[in-house]
């Protein structure tokens, strides 16, 4: 039964993808391309591209894409449910434990050392996203490889967010519109 196969395959992906983001790609590739032959390597590369262009986690996007290809929209729902099932169970348990034990001195001690580290991780994610948007060629080859238009959009958004406390979702939408007028319109005209 194709639905059960999809479910089981994505339960494994959901259960064994640690570290999030792109670290789950090899695991997804193994299940989808090598073990089950649901997609060719080229189609798989397309999913990675789509994942970069659309919102949502890579694993969920892959589950939806493979599900549609293999068994239509219902397949995509089954694959997505499979993908999130392990997290739902494990994280719910962790959540209950956290809310119960949060005040214990041992738990407090551990959390106090983890919090600054998490801030460091967020800072690192912010830096890599910034570099990705400023340097499209992938490698830094001097000032010429910097996309100054993107730098201007970034700077204006950053100031509006910090100084005027603009709504972040609205900000992202406006940045998209700015992108369209700066990059897209000149090419279309």
């Amino acid at each position: 039964m194709i639905y059960l196969q999809l479910l089981w395959s994505f339960v494994q992906i959901g259960l064994f993808s640690f570290g999030g983001g792109y670290s789950s790609i090899p695991l997804i590739q193994e299940q989808i391309v090598e073990t089950n032959h649901w997609l060719t390597m080229n189609e798989f590369a397309d999913i990675v591209t789509i994942s970069q262009m659309t919102p949502g986690p890579v694993a969920i996007n892959a589950a939806t894409f493979v599900g549609v290809r293999v068994a239509g929209p219902l397949g995509s729902i089954v694959a997505t449910i499979g993908c999130i099932l392990p997290s739902c169970i494990i994280v719910s348990i962790l959540g209950v434990v956290y809310l119960k034990l949060q005040r214990l001195s041992m738990v407090q001690g551990v959390l106090q050392t983890i919090r600054p580290a998490v801030v460091g991780l967020i800072a690192s994610a912010a830096l890599s996203l910034l570099l990705l948007s400023l340097i499209h060629t992938g490698a830094f080859l001097g000032l010429k490889s910097v996309d100054w238009l993107a730098a201007a959009i970034f700077l204006i958004c950053f100031i509006l967010l910090r100084a005027l406390r603009w709504n972040p979702v609205l900000m992202i939408l406006i940045a998209g519109a700015a992108g369209f007028f700066c990059y897209g319109l000149p090419q279309l005209l």
């Binding site: 262009m53 912010a126 996203l129 948007s133 499209h136 993107a150």
Partner: peptide, 15 residues
């Protein structure tokens, strides 16, 4: 082009 602009906006939110 919209995605390119949004990428800069998301970077600003995270920063």
């Amino acid at each position: 082009s919209i995605l390119r602009g949004m990428q800069a906006g998301v970077a600003a939110v995270l920063m």
